[in-house]
Amino acid sequence: MTDPARPADPTRLPDLASRALGGAVVAADDEFFAAKENLLLPHPPQARGDFGHHGKEYDGWETRRRRSPGSDRAVVRLGAPGVVAAVVVDTAHFTGNFPPRASVEGAAVEGHPAPAELQRADWRPLVPLSDLAGDTANVFPVEPDRRVTHVRLTIHPDGGVARLRVHGTPLPDPRLLDAGPVDLAATENGGLVTGVSDEFYGRPQQLLAPGPARSMGEGWETRRRRDDGHDWVELALACEGVVTLAELDTSWFLGNAPASAALTGSGPDGDVVVLPRTRLQPDTRHRFPLASGSAVHRVRLDVFPDGGMARLRLWGRPTPAGRAALGRRWFDALPDVPAIEVLQAAGVPAAEAGRLVGSRPLGDDLPPAVARLVLGG
């Protein structure tokens, strides 16, 4: 299997802000012409020709024309917190009414803050004030740095944006994985597609999306094979873990479901069979209890010979080593202020919390409270 790595094109990473992943626009200064919620819709923006009470309708977010100095903002809660690698400010179908410039900031906030509380967050630049082109998917690479939970788009001075995409690597709070068996493959838990043989009809990252697929278009589907090979997709789990239940869901795929499938994992003991090649049925949610007990951090799904699948779920628990590695990644990626707050909430005195945060990455000699928080157990 290939090693998980940041792809050459960062827009291949999941859109952490997508409504399909649970993202939401929690506030906007103005949405006179078109609603802020359109910014995060997962499907491509559509051209509209209708006129309403406020003028021509657009599939995007559009503010009124400013007659005074200033700019307009929209605040987004990411569906999956993570480390941002690229932002796309898509002005599709906005031609004479797009913003000439925009900037994007990120913040990391614990819990579930209200919009008013987010105004006091420590916002840091992700995309500096940059020129935009109309009717264009404006792509801005971001040097991966700290974990963020929210982003703020500022358009200068006003206008319309069709979609905002925030591509990056999901990085969950590891404490959420401590509660019990979790889907180690889910994007919201940190699962990530790292390789695929074919994605002609549907991107493999959709396999790891939350909730059931609502149509065949929300799954992964390959073209028809005309050779003796078969198709596959590889993924990195949220962390090293033991998978105890696999779900291979072919819902909506009737005349194009794979005939059979297998799962192979890679872990500290090398490659292991997670699920031997097993017959599948069309339009069926298959659930397979697993008894191997082997620790894996990557999994490959092989489908024979080709076809489509709606969802892949790999339920299990992190190993102690996997939980510790995830905890370190999470804590080292927290901005300074949230990191100090997390330590203080765990009972670490302020001075000690400041010292630990300033000395990151953390070493092995940790106070018990910090070890429990970061490493688990």
Results as ranks from 00 to 15, higher is better:
residue 333 A to P: 00
residue 115 P to Q: 05
residue 203 R to P: 13
residue 353 A to H: 04
residue 121 A to K: 01
residue 316 G to L: 11
residue 312 L to E: 06
residue 156 H to N: 04
residue 136 T to K: 11
residue 72 D to M: 15
residue 352 E to K: 13
residue 199 E to Q: 14
residue 95 T to C: 04
residue 21 L to E: 06
residue 68 S to V: 15
residue 127 V to E: 01
residue 23 G to H: 02
residue 361 P to G: 14
residue 30 D to W: 02
residue 226 R to E: 09
residue 288 F to C: 07
residue 174 P to A: 08
residue 255 G to W: 07
residue 365 D to V: 15
residue 277 R to P: 07
residue 132 L to A: 09
residue 284 T to I: 05
residue 132 L to G: 12
residue 201 Y to K: 04
residue 148 V to P: 00
residue 266 S to G: 12
residue 72 D to A: 15
residue 110 E to R: 15
residue 290 L to D: 06
residue 14 P to N: 08
residue 74 A to Y: 01
residue 111 G to P: 14
residue 185 A to W: 05
residue 220 W to C: 02
residue 299 V to P: 04
residue 184 L to C: 06
residue 370 V to Y: 02
residue 150 H to M: 12
residue 255 G to L: 03
residue 256 N to C: 07
residue 125 P to R: 02
residue 318 P to L: 10
residue 235 L to P: 00
residue 240 E to T: 00
residue 343 L to H: 06
residue 183 D to P: 11
residue 165 R to A: 10
residue 250 T to S: 15
residue 145 D to Q: 13
residue 96 G to P: 13
residue 266 S to C: 07
residue 16 L to H: 01
residue 160 G to F: 03
residue 137 A to N: 11
residue 271 D to S: 14
residue 332 D to F: 01
residue 32 F to N: 05
residue 242 V to Q: 05
residue 205 Q to E: 14
residue 260 S to E: 15
residue 208 L to R: 13
residue 73 R to V: 14
residue 114 A to V: 12
residue 97 N to P: 04
residue 284 T to R: 15
residue 269 D to Y: 10
residue 180 G to H: 12
residue 59 D to I: 15
residue 271 D to P: 08
residue 162 A to K: 05
residue 26 V to W: 01
residue 13 L to N: 05
residue 253 F to E: 01
residue 171 L to A: 06
residue 208 L to H: 05
residue 25 V to E: 09
residue 174 P to W: 04
residue 26 V to Q: 00
residue 322 G to I: 10
residue 94 F to Y: 11
residue 250 T to E: 07
residue 142 V to D: 02
